[in-house]
Amino acid sequence: MKLEIRELWEELKFDLGGMKMPKLDGVKDRKLLLGGGNTKGDILFIGDDPDLFEDENMRVLPGTSGEFFIKLCDLADLSPEKYYITNISKCILKWRELSEEEKKVMKEYLDMQIALIKPKIIVALGPEVVTVLLNEESNISDMRGKVYNWEGNIKVIPTYDPGYVKRVRGLDGKKARPAVEFWNDLKMIKTEI
């Protein structure tokens, strides 16, 4: 059984590597990535930010939203052994930049990842991810802090995009509130596990 799952992961990577994406022709950083982390983790973080990770080993560039996010996970006692991080788009393009056909293919990759990982919790990092997973337009401020039941008894926890939180965390008053709420969401994930 373990060998089959490993083979399926390799097949998924190979498939993704051969994907044709005309928008990326001639782009220097053309890499297509499934994600990084523990493929057997209980938590699956799904974002829409090419800076969340650089490679399968979850390397991140200094000063990026990925570095910020992983540091917050560490502070919330969510160790890398507990999670896998991926994006709804498997390339440097954001979801909104993809064609409808590309979105369909990327959603299939995401569905396959979810099936292989079998997480207990999916954390939807931002409104685009919530829309893709829950099939509804979302006001993330209204949805965050709640747990939604999803297919296969998987819990979905919507929260803010780490890049957005990184930008607003130093602001005063109402604008900084998402940073506090994001931190509370990370702590809630810990208790849900």
Rank of each mutant, 00 (worst) to 15 (best):
P80Y: 09
G41I: 02
K146A: 02
P62N: 00
M143V: 13
S138G: 11
F182L: 01
L134K: 04
I43L: 15
R144E: 03
G36N: 04
G66D: 06
L72G: 11
G41S: 14
D77P: 06
L78K: 05
K104C: 02
E4N: 15
M19K: 01
V165C: 01
V60D: 04
N38Y: 05
L78N: 00
D55P: 00
W183P: 08
K104I: 14
K187H: 10
D161K: 06
E11Q: 13
E102F: 12
I140M: 05
S138D: 01
R169S: 02
S79D: 11
E10P: 10
K23Q: 15
Q113W: 02
S65Q: 07
V168F: 10
M58F: 14
T159G: 00
L52D: 07
S138L: 00
S99L: 04
K20H: 09
K190H: 08
S65T: 09
E67C: 07
N184D: 11
I154T: 10
P162F: 05
R144T: 10
L110E: 03
G152P: 04
I114Y: 06
D25G: 08
K104F: 09
E56T: 11
T131Y: 11
R30W: 06
L98F: 02
K104G: 14
G66A: 12
E136Q: 10
V27A: 06
T64E: 04
F69D: 00
G163F: 04
G47C: 13
L32C: 08
G63N: 09
Y160W: 13
L52K: 07
Y164T: 10
A76N: 07
F182H: 01
K40Q: 03
T86F: 10
K103V: 09
W150M: 07
D48L: 11
M188S: 13
K82R: 15
R96H: 04
T191L: 08
E81T: 14
K190V: 06
E97A: 11
K82E: 14
D42C: 15
E128A: 06
E11S: 14
V168H: 01
S138V: 00
E54R: 10
